[in-house]
Design a protein around this nucleic acid. Structure first.
Lengths: 350, 350
DNA sequence: CTGAAAGCGCTTACAG
DNA sequence: CTGAAAGCGCTTACAG
């Protein structure tokens, strides 16, 4: 060891980030012992732990996640894989995930995907293996893809699936219980006195489409109502599909007096179609949506809708992934709830 | 080297990811030469390069970014730092960034922040240094924070700032030219024949607030119009602030016949306020927004607004960061453009 | 409870 | 044009 080099190292210490070696030397222990402190090993004597922690604090030392990851054969990156086209959903989910990760030292890597793409699974595998992801959160509809879950299991990557209903064992699932939300919508419409009731679904590929419909029918059934086949339309969770379905529904001589659209985007389409046909909401037709993103209050009239606590769901999902989820938390916090605004009312007297 | 170990290594090769050592052995070269191929060094004989590339392809080898990063003292992660509350903006920007990163081997790490928070700079520093980020994209309004840019320069982190106007040297900037967009709005309103014209700004902290207003005034001036002080309101880029400003403006005996709101969220608020006051849009009052996110077409009437090519801007920003931006690209592609829909029309005849 | 050696998968600096 | 040695900053396995 040339003196010049030692000299350089010393002068570097002031500006460069300290390493585990610096801490070990300053605390008068081996780097392995510092490593034990970093990793909260119980095999460190109390006073040496305190001494090391003091040096760590004083030097502002933070272990290098890259080096740690290389040795651990795993990174400190959590991926979120989504194919949901709704920006509000995506951002709200990200916020929730970041809430849960705050202060954990993990970082969030975003990875949109396309299940239709032939290379979808290959891409997912590449992403996970290349980055040696600590784990992955899957949101609908990728979360409903069994091949994706199967792949992650095979390559030994931790994952949590966010979906409307349980599709996996409990520690791999966060359920959004969309059936409950659909039921709320059904009850609300039935209680208002509607009998001519219509439903616009999402695409069949989304599990939520079926859950929201199933719940809706249950809610109606509680009041002795049923969803007639002629009033069950297939939409695509898009604004345009909401317009198209509502235009069809509302131009019929025997038109429904209430429409439950399986998301807010389609409900916005229903509002447009109604207005184009000269129908007033809610006087002539009641409109109920699902999601309660910002859009719901921007529309006119403000939309009655079902609120899913997406941000909370996101937080729970990462906490589960990191093995820090608090089981004491009240699971009621995650249930969808009805938010009544101005787009729903009693059926026309006519 | 015990035979059993060699045995294990061989059997592992089938399932485990190959390393640079495997490729070197199979190609009959040293790992350093493989490294040269990975890093596109010119100092490799053509035939040995081809041989190595063949082995890489055959084995499906991809270098470990963690190990590479550790040796490089730099990761293959690009961070996006934002404090924009609009989910549409955030997601659209992310899409653009991901567009530019596709196939590059980089991954996108999201990092929302709060400039008001006293630990903002410290947090940013921690994020960048801990992850040894390859670089960072800053969006408004963090992109306008000189302290943040200064910090990144100090710690030697590459960055690109997306902002309405140039605030740094050209290779650190992508300009959105909001002044041009404001001008379009001003021209449009003036050409429709309005003379009683109002403006609702964003918060003064956002540079775009001033640019959009400045451009608007320029557009009006071209037709000999001016923005009266009484008609210049301060908003906060929020729906609620749009409602409040418009309610004030539209309840005056001498109310404006056209309102340019500096973003779509506020324009949505103007629509609500107008309706609450029994005013029709555009018959009684013209409303023009800025952004052209999905919301603009969901509103009723569909909003006339200024479109910023945010996704394109995002792509350009990462390409610049990665040093891959194509200078031949037409800079016109990034200019804001007016999108005329249903919320603007001539002033009332009265 | 603590440490010296070897290793994670790559690159840099130095030779040749 | 190519390679053997040392190193990036940490952990695992093995000793003691």
């Amino acid at each position: 060891m040339k003196p010049s080099k030692t000299q350089a190292q010393l002068s570097d210490e002031a500006r460069k980030r300290p390493t585990i070696n610096d801490i070990a030397r300053l605390a008068g222990v081996s780097k392995k012992t510092v490593s034990r402190v970093i990793n909260a090993s119980p095999y460190v004597r109390e006073d040496t732990r305190e001494r090391i922690e003091a040096v760590i604090a004083e030097m502002g030392y933070a272990p290098d996640p890259q080096a740690r990851g290389l040795a651990f054969r795993r990174s400190f990156l959590i991926g979120v894989v989504h194919d949901n086209p709704n920006p509000q959903y995506v951002v709200t989910m990200q916020q929730g995930l970041l809430d849960g990760m705050r202060g954990s030292g993990f970082e969030l890597v975003v990875h949109p995907c396309d299940r239709q793409n032939p290379s979808f699974l290959e891409d997912l595998r590449g992403f996970v293996e290349r980055q040696k992801l600590f784990g992955v959160v899957l949101t609908p509809s990728v979360s409903e893809d069994e091949r994706a879950a199967q792949l992650l299991r095979e390559i030994g990557c931790e994952y949590v699936r966010v979906a409307s209903v349980s599709l996996d064992d409990a520690n791999h699932m966060i359920e959004t219980r969309d059936r409950v939300g659909g039921r709320e919508a059904g009850r609300h419409i039935a209680e208002l006195g509607h009998t001519q009731v219509a439903f616009i679904s999402g695409p069949p590929m989304f599990r939520s489409s079926h859950e929201r419909r199933g719940g809706f029918e249950e809610g109606l059934a509680e009041k002795g109502l049923a969803l007639e086949a002629q009033f069950a339309m297939e939409g695509a969770y898009t604004f345009e599909s909401g317009i198209a379905a509502a235009r069809d529904l509302l131009s019929r001589p025997n038109r429904p007096t209430a429409i439950f659209a399986a998301n807010d985007e389609m409900a916005a389409g229903v509002l447009h179609a109604a207005r184009d046909l000269g129908l007033r909401v809610p006087e002539d037709v009641t409109v109920v949506g699902y999601d309660d993103f910002d859009l719901a209050t921007r529309l006119w009239p403000a939309l009655t809708t079902v609120r899913t606590p997406t941000r909370e769901i996101g937080r729970l999902a990462v906490e589960r992934l990191m093995g820090r989820d608090d089981e004491r938390r009240n699971p009621k916090d995650r249930l969808p709830t009805l938010v009544v605004r101005k787009s729903s009312g009693p059926p026309p007297k006519a």
